[in-house]
């Protein structure tokens, strides 16, 4: 089983990112679940979402304690939340950041999702949309296939800028 924990802030689209990711995995003919942890939701508050992907049906409902992959949509969360908690040995962290990030003992990949969203004008109510570009990065990391990432995005959003942003992220992410 491949377990992913997504850290974001309320309103940034972490919950939707988890659902898109599960949908893409499902389109890859795998079993997947996406479960947000809901606290007292409000814009800007830290939000955690969980995605499980497996070849077998998934029976687990409890939260992910030892993720294989951690996705951080807002690097400023790391000031207050220990995003690395429980990460598996050899686990990876994907961080939305314009600058390379170094964290001791883990593989870190960084990508400027905010910059990508702004570059294709993917902005809603003044906030850049991160949940669709992040799918491109996850496809590059082979968590899901590129085709399924695009299909999942098109299934949920009619605005093609979402697909464009995902494609840009796919190209930009350096493994």
């Amino acid at each position: 089983m491949f377990e992913i924990r997504i850290h974001s802030r309320g309103g940034q689209g972490g919950v939707t990112a988890a659902r898109l990711l599960a949908m893409a995995a499902f389109l890859d003919k795998k079993h997947a679940t996406a479960a947000p942890f809901y606290g007292a939701e409000r814009r800007g508050a830290p939000v955690t979402s969980f995605v499980r992907i497996d070849e077998e049906p998934i029976k687990i409902y409890s939260q992910i304690r030892s993720p294989n992959l951690i996705v951080v949509l807002d690097a400023s969360i790391m000031d207050t939340v220990d995003v690395l908690q429980g990460i598996q040995e050899g686990g990876t962290v994907l961080i939305n950041s314009p600058h390379p990030v170094h964290l001791p003992g883990v593989n870190v990949l960084s990508i400027d999702l905010t910059g990508i969203a702004l570059s294709v004008d993917l902005v809603v109510s003044g906030s850049p949309i991160l949940n669709t570009p992040v799918l491109g990065a996850l496809a590059k990391m082979d968590v899901i296939s590129r085709e399924s990432a695009e299909s999942a995005i098109r299934d949920m959003f009619s605005d093609e800028r979402n697909v464009k942003a995902a494609e840009a992220a796919y190209k930009e992410l350096i493994l």
């Binding site: 499902f26 679940t33 479960a35 809901y38």
Partner: peptide, 12 residues
């Protein structure tokens, strides 16, 4: 159905 645990999880 269990609140959030089932109401908000996405499955096939």
């Amino acid at each position: 159905l269990d609140g959030f645990v089932l109401s908000h999880i996405m499955q096939s």
